[in-house]
Amino acid sequence: MITRDKLLDILKNIAKIIQENRQFLTDLDAAIGDGDHGINMNKGFRAVEEKIDTVKDKDCGAILKTIAMTLISTVGGASGPLYGTAFLKAAMVVNGKMELENDDVVKMFDEAIKGIVMRGKAEKGEKTMLDALIPAFEEIKSSLQDGNTMSEAFNRAQKAAADGVEYTKTIKATKGRASYLGDRSIGHQDPGATSTYLMIKTIAETLNS
């Protein structure tokens, strides 16, 4: 189970890790994209950080919806609509809830992925955030179904997301600005998959603390 306060901690820690990795994410994006992924993500999550105190008394759905709208309105490029849609879809399945049970978390990730697929017209294997997110979700789902704790499920998800990031180095991009490079995008890791991995890693670390 994830309490509302733990959810707020997770969001604060995600804002922190994005800030710490903004240059790394920007450098990754400079190699195959617009070179602004880290800058845009940091801008969005700094705005999220400022919003957290205003929603600390709300339910989990309301908190996630506020995060979604903040990202959509502040993050430039494709990342804002994609991450914003993911948070918005997740928010809708936990509307009114003060804590998140295992089933809630599975439904949240399932809906978030569907939202990204719909918004980005992408699928796994196209060198996008989905290459980290989908394997992470599959681990969360199967791990929780096997009776493992939420912490253990996210520890496994972190490993799956990291493997997904590594996988993006081996394939060519077929979506976004990176797709213009064709085969020259092979050998580079996807910045969106990397920021997704950082988020999963942060959830795991916050649940373990």
Score class of each variant (00 low, 15 high):
M1I: 13
I2P: 07
L7Q: 00
L7V: 03
L8D: 07
D9S: 15
I10E: 00
K12Q: 08
K16L: 13
I17G: 01
E20N: 10
N21G: 01
R22I: 05
L25V: 00
L25S: 04
T26V: 03
G33E: 13
G33Q: 11
D34V: 05
D36I: 06
G38I: 10
I39H: 12
I39F: 15
I39A: 10
I39Y: 14
N40R: 12
R46A: 10
A47D: 05
A47S: 09
E50K: 15
D53C: 09
T54D: 14
D57K: 15
K58V: 01
K58G: 02
K58W: 09
I63L: 05
K65Q: 14
T66I: 05
I67Y: 05
A68S: 15
T70P: 00
S73P: 01
G76V: 07
S79I: 03
S79T: 03
S79K: 01
T85N: 11
A86D: 07
L88M: 15
K89I: 04
A90D: 03
M92A: 14
K97I: 05
K97C: 00
E101C: 07
N102P: 08
D103M: 13
V105C: 11
V105R: 04
V106R: 11
F109G: 05
F109K: 06
D110W: 11
E111D: 12
K114V: 00
K114I: 02
V117Q: 15
R119E: 03
E123Y: 02
K124D: 10
E126D: 09
T128A: 08
T128S: 12
A132E: 06
A132V: 04
A136H: 00
K141F: 00
L144S: 10
Q145T: 10
Q145C: 06
Q145E: 15
D146R: 13
G147E: 09
G147Q: 00
N148I: 01
M150R: 04
E152L: 06
A153R: 03
F154E: 10
R156Q: 11
A157T: 02
A162E: 14
G164C: 10
Y167E: 11
Y167Q: 11
T168L: 06
T168D: 03
T168V: 07
K169Y: 07
T174N: 09
G176A: 08
R177E: 04
A178P: 04
D183H: 01
R184W: 02
S185L: 06
I186E: 08
Q189G: 08
D190K: 08
G192T: 05
A193M: 11
S195P: 08
I200K: 06
T202D: 01
T202S: 04
A204Q: 07
T206W: 05
N208K: 14
S209M: 07
S209E: 14
